[in-house]
Amino acid sequence: MSGTTIKKIKLTVLFLSLSGLLSFSAYFNVDKNRTPVAHKKHKYLRATHKISIPLKVHITSDTKNATPGEPFTLTGHVNTHKQLKNVHISWALPKGVELLKGSLDYFVNEVSKNNPHSSELVLVSTVEKNLRIHFRAKGRGHYSATAQYNTTLQTQINREIANIKASHKKYVNGHL
């Protein structure tokens, strides 16, 4: 076996051991607990949560970062599995964001599982700094949900959140 071949093998082993580290370790962590009479290992982190509501909202955008002076579109999405009547839709715009098109505050007759609602705004930012825009839906009188969009930092925020989730998952799987 030539020196070059050995080096290639070493490199391959190194790459595999790094790139497959998480999945391989997770696999072996599970597998080592398997014995003929063992419980299935129910690997989850037990946690209690506060009451959730049957109404979900989120915002999508046609741009990663809003450039001052350039119009961008935000769409607020409302989903529910209940049949909600007279749903109140509202947007909260900070100073530095101007509305070009769309309604900031209105009511929708009904939102349901098969009839979700979308609310579209065309906006323009007039400043360089990050601004937070909020979208809210209020259903059946006394519960409501809010989503947030950041004009210049949303991409970074999404990446940071993904990193925290991945970190937590890796940590928990390594300690359960």
């Binding site: 982190l45 037990r46 946690a47 209690t48 949560h49 506060k50 959730s52 937070r132 947030q148 950041n150 930092l153 925020i157 940071e160 959140i161 925290i164 989730k165 937590h168 998952k169």
Partner: peptide
């Protein structure tokens, strides 16, 4: 953002920790 289903929750393991939501992205 840790991956929980809601922003306020209790984790029995690891010293019985409570997490309470303080807002979103500042």
């Amino acid at each position: 953002v840790y991956g929980a289903a809601a922003g306020s929750f209790f984790v029995p393991s690891s010293n019985n920790r409570l997490f309470i939501i303080g807002g979103s992205n500042g």
